[in-house]
């Protein structure tokens, strides 16, 4: 296969620009292979994250020709032949160097979300029973590899910088996995509405489109959580009843 030209974002926050590299592409190569080849041939200090090279760890997230993707799962032969390939870091996060960004905000968000709290074991052997059909949905959410591409594409974070008020699609999926876990007993709906800012999501479904694990983020995770918030705080009958009988939590936050 012919040599292909790559425009790669090089530099740090003080000074960065695209630099061009040309390297030979062989059958079956993915974008990450090309980046490694450029590293070995021309740019040993080209910074990029990667680990598994099989779409399982979610380290090599980048923007390829403007689309948020995993470099290890983007085949060269699915990009327009003969054209220059542009590789940039995820733009929604602070730049560190070259293709590496500072994603530490995401890890901090998770610490703010209340942990899993199971009900007491109720099977005779001291464990629990759960049916497969009851865990299918949660298992879909738990496929998440934390590549943060959904966070990268979300306009609430990317364009409006609502990092203080909104946890982003990744953590709404995490919250959905906790809330829909058959064993979990924790109460999180109030935080989902306030601290986690679910109202900022206006279901444009960009996150679902870029998810490399094909998690139906908007339909299966975010919308059901929005419904829970509505049921708890905006149901007219509940609001009416509340006038006569103030309930725990609702009176403070209603």
């Amino acid at each position: 296969m012919p040599a292909t030209t790559f425009r790669i974002w090089r530099g740090d926050p003080t000074s960065a620009q695209f630099k061009e590299y040309t390297t030979d592409i062989s059958e079956g190569m993915v974008v990450l292979d090309a980046v490694h080849q450029i590293q070995a041939e021309n740019a040993p200090d080209l910074a990029c994250r990667w680990n598994c090279k099989a779409g399982k760890c979610g380290s090599c997230s980048a923007e390829i020709n403007g689309r948020p993707r995993l470099m290890c799962m983007t085949r060269m032969d699915e990009l327009p032949p003969g054209e220059t390939v542009t590789i940039e870091p995820m733009r929604a996060f602070p730049h560190v160097r070259d293709l590496v960004t500072d994603v530490s905000w995401n890890f901090g968000v998770k610490e703010r979300i209340k942990r899993f709290r199971p009900r007491k074991p109720d099977a005779p052997d001291g464990t629990w029973r759960m049916q497969q059909t009851d865990v299918d949905r949660v298992q879909e959410f738990r496929k998440c590899i934390e590549c943060f591409l959904c966070q990268d594409v979300c306009h609430v974070l990317r364009d409006h910088h609502k990092h203080e008020e909104f946890v982003g699609p990744r953590y709404l999926v995490h919250l959905a996995a906790l809330e829909m876990h058959p064993l979990d007993t924790e109460e999180r709906v109030r935080e989902i509405r306030r601290a986690h800012g679910i109202g900022y999501c206006n279901i444009t479904k960009c996150c679902t489109k870029v998810c490399p694990e094909h998690i139906t983020i908007t339909d299966n995770a975010i919308i059901p959580l929005k419904e829970r918030v509505v049921d708890e705080f905006y149901d007219p009958l509940t609001r009416l009843l509340r006038v006569f009988k103030p309930r725990r939590g609702a009176s403070k936050d209603g």
Binding site: R115, F116, P118, P121, T127, W128, R129, M130, Q131, Q132, V135, V138, Q139, R142, L178, H181, D184
Partner: peptide, 18 residues
């Protein structure tokens, strides 16, 4: 393994829910 389940892991299930 059971401890992981108590920490939130969701393993595939047998027909009787184990």
């Amino acid at each position: 393994v059971r401890e992981l389940e108590a920490w939130g892991a969701v393993f595939d299930r047998t027909p009787d829910g184990r």
